[in-house]
Write a protein that binds this DNA or RNA. Structure first.
Lengths: 200, 200, 200, 200
DNA sequence: CTCTAATCGAGACGGTACGTCGCGTCTTACG
DNA sequence: CGTAAGACGCGACGTACCGTCTCGATTAGAG
């Protein structure tokens, strides 16, 4: 399942130079995101930090946002493979806990990705990557699955953002509980859903 | 209650000319939002549309966002007075239904306010205006009230955005049910709170 | 006659700031022309030297060439008023001598204007400013006046360029003789032309 | 005489492929000059049109101008061999007429070469190729031979450019007369030189 | 009903980032 | 193992918008 997510990333270049440039740009962006909000980052800064020419940026990405999309896709992909089955699997809560632990272990990265104007792009990317994950049969009848998907992802991100912004430290376990009860639970129709092996 | 919300708006000008200019600017922005996304709107466009000088804009608002904040505050204020008590009152579901009906009656306005880069500002303004509304005792123990507030407002906006984007028409009643069950319910501690008409 | 030349310069701005910027730009270009060939000069250099913003350049001139045209027009205008009647007047040779003396007194300026890719623009400007000066009746029948005009101006410039490039110093008198015999003489039909007061 | 002109062209390559590439590049440039001004032509365009690699261009010519120089040299060489003795020979006017007829027969080529920013390079090339042609003794004493050479070539080109730009067709004979009287005559010292058919 | 000061329109200005283009070099990948 | 294809660093271009500023001209509201 998660393999298909990786495969979704298209047009990986062949030329060694292109690979190098692209990697440098991604790295530079991740680097800069640790220091500055995404909005404030300039394409020129990215190029400079990457040690690449300014015009070269545009040979790879049409806009700053596209680069962020690429970076985000990769990180989210990692995140998803880490957390395996989120909603439907046999160990739902374990998955959520994995996710929280992973985010906790990379607080800085995810703070950067989810703050400073980047959030909406990351959210869209996450929506994309999770679009095949859900099982429609889990939704209550009054709740359109697409809406459930959107609100679920958004709320989860909201919770994570809130967590990452907190001064006093909440443990991953606490946040996992919150996510489970506040985000997942309302979406899943416990009474109706077939408890059998979901996602075919 | 809603009076205090209005009172929060500061520094309403005295001079008749200032009032006129400010009103013209607000109107111009609302006008333009019907045609273009907020990001794409230029201060120069706003000034021109308002029939006011370019510099005059800055005599009233430091940034484009500030103007949007002003406009949004007013609209949200109207929305709040329309929907009276949202979560805690005796007729919770009625309030939500009022809200949906009001938004439905002004689809274009709220589409403009909630799409095209403006959403986050509107969300912040709504967070501000609803910050005194909630009753902390309603929250379950595992859920920090501040987080509940944030996720609640964000989710509600998500639902509305989804609704406004839909091609096929969902009725206000349907959306009210969704809001009630998907957004409000999970936040409110069902054991303590007075049982509303929802949750089945 | 020369008054009309001055009048030809259009759209002199009213705003004091515009006048100042424009003057600064012209001055900067003249300045830089002393050091570098016109081709090598960058609009950014001009702006910087003028102490003006980069974008401001384009508020006054669409291209580098346009600025040069403006500068050249002014200098040529001065040159023309200095040398009064060139071809037809009662003291033809005196005029030519005046011109040579004037150029000699401003060798650096005219070297800059006539070398380094600028020559063709200066030539065009000079063609423009002298277009009303000639008396068609002075041309021999086998020589189209327009051609005479072009070749005359071009040749004169060629002579001046050659002069300005010379290491050993030719006196203005010598050059005046050359101009008179090599450039003017072949154009003027001595046998046919009425020696009376030309240009009506 | 004209042989020595050809000999001036250096480093004709041995490798057959190099010859082919070089010829292709020259052809491509001539081709493009029919459609676009020289300034506007890109090295990439030339390479593409020539069916050769972009980098290949630089293996043969350091700049676009160098290629034009090469092309121009060849064409001028042909022109010169066509018109044999220009100024001094026994049949001066015949030579000039030959030249005019040849240019007339290749209007498009020479229009391309003499317009669109290419003129100065062609002029320089022509100056180079004619530098050994003149007979210094023909010049009047007040006229430095080098200056005579320059002004002569420049004026001749001016006349040709004017001719090629004309809408209404002047005959080669007419232009030959103009060249003879306007360009050659003033340079040649009439007292010493053999009186040609012109000047009357 | 005037006088005065605040506010207005208009728009030029210095700045900064953008995205495009062409150059000339230099590295690939392929035949 | 050489050669075409083309990615790259560089740097100028011209555009757009920002927020500041300097001007009169207008006009509201205090005296």
């Amino acid at each position: 399942m998660s393999v298909s997510l990786i495969a979704a990333r298209i047009d990986v270049p062949q030329d060694a130079r292109q690979v190098r440039s692209r990697k440098a740009l991604c790295g530079a962006l991740l680097d800069l995101l640790q220091e500055t909000a995404f909005d404030q980052i300039t394409i020129r800064e990215i190029s400079t930090r990457a040690g690449t020419g300014y015009a070269t940026f545009f040979r790879h990405y049409p806009t700053k946002e596209a680069l962020l999309g690429d970076v985000a896709a990769e990180e989210i992909c990692t995140l998803m493979t880490m957390t395996a089955t989120m909603m439907s699997g046999p160990d739902r809560f374990g998955s959520i806990l994995d996710l929280c632990n992973y985010v906790d272990a990379h607080r800085k990265l995810w703070s950067a990705l989810l703050t400073g104007g980047a959030a909406s792009i990351v959210r869209d990317e996450m929506l994309l990557q999770t679009s095949q994950l859900g099982d429609e049969r889990l939704c209550p009848v009054w709740l359109p699955p697409e809406l459930a998907h959107r609100v679920g992802v958004s709320s989860a991100i909201d919770v994570l953002v809130w967590w990452l912004e907190q001064k006093e430290h909440y443990s991953p376990d606490q946040v996992a509980i919150i996510l489970d009860r506040l985000v997942i639970d309302p979406i899943v129709d416990k009474l109706v859903a077939v408890p059998g092996p979901a996602s075919g």
